[in-house]
Design a protein around this nucleic acid. Sequence first.
DNA 1: TGAGATAAGTATCTTTTGATACACACTATT
DNA 2: AATAGTGTGTATCAAAAGATACTTATCTCA
Lengths: 210, 210
Amino acid sequence: MGTTDDLFKKLKSFSEPELQAEILKHAKFLKANKGDILIKEGQYLNFLPIVIDGLLRVYQQNEDREILLYYVGPEQTCMMSLSSAYFDYYSTANGIAMEPSEILVLPAHLIAEWQLKYPSWNKFIINTYKSRYDELLNAFGSVAFKPIHVRVKEYLTEYVKNEGSNKIPISHQTLANELGTTRVVISRILKQMEQKKLVKLYRGYIQLKI
Amino acid sequence: MGTTDDLFKKLKSFSEPELQAEILKHAKFLKANKGDILIKEGQYLNFLPIVIDGLLRVYQQNEDREILLYYVGPEQTCMMSLSSAYFDYYSTANGIAMEPSEILVLPAHLIAEWQLKYPSWNKFIINTYKSRYDELLNAFGSVAFKPIHVRVKEYLTEYVKNEGSNKIPISHQTLANELGTTRVVISRILKQMEQKKLVKLYRGYIQLKI
DNA sequence: TGAGATAAGTATCTTTTGATACACACTATT
DNA sequence: AATAGTGTGTATCAAAAGATACTTATCTCA
């Protein structure tokens, strides 16, 4: 786990010493293995998870299809959990650990209390809502207006922009899930892109050209 | 405008007397006519509008298409404005008055200040984010997974559920805009629904059966 | 090494959605 | 009544997306 200092070096959002003390007092720490399901649709939560290390994937499922809502990385918390915990609503999404993850867990009732006491906590919460809302709005606009081949292109270029490498380690099936469509559709589009020399396809990864 | 008492009878969210006094001290009141455009994409805002009476429609536009994000009714504020004002971001949506509307306008810097001072204000802000997020998530799920004819049906039944009457006063073009598609598609679907005896079509309105 | 799992390629067919164009009806206004 | 604007019906065509089915390649691990 490391020392307290290490923890708040990672969780930079919480700058106030009093808040840090409170977090240490009330938090529990949880380790999740890759593939562990942390939240399910319909579930009520009475705690708030904040990721210290690792990555969670939050997605919705409809019968056979699923679609990515967002990822939760270090220093972030999960919107669905936040709503669920703050408002005593059930979650409308699933959360799964993509990597071995370390998670800080806080009792739900503290969320509202700290909101009034600690400006940095308050900002953290609002920031979470705002950035997730923006992400979702973006995704919504894409789904509503853009044909899939454009969304595929954007997904790939976005990935490359964030990760630096132009090799995207993702299977067609997984990409289909991210975009809410089926594997065959993705394979078809990627093949067309390859013919246009936009990508090169390999087993397990896609190389974006230029 | 009416008296102060009237105002806070409408804005029930703000129960604290101190908060009410602050609102009265800093607020300006704005009247919008039907069709007035209040927010445009790309615009920065330094104020937060809260609707007292009337209805605003917030939507996104892509070239020729547009799509509804949400409506803002009495006692509600506009997410896009909130983000824009709080975080000094530009708006990514448009807002237009659907009816003659009365709007309370607050300077942006007060949002964060009051967040720490007044629990009811804090709750108002969080509530706004949460409910808009849920709405959007819902819309997102629909667009991603459901064929248009289902979304049309849901739009109509939702309307009837909320308004009581089973006569929905909306043109095909407008409905197309709400759902992010084109008029011809809507006309076609409605005609099929009429043949299945699910609706009856009239000029300017749709009657939902059962 | 060989069996099973995962990944990818592809052909065929259907459905959904969109684009375009034109006709006609109703409404409001002059 | 003439006109313009809006609302609706509908036919035709094209494109996008999805469903299904079968094949081939690659990986993993017992």
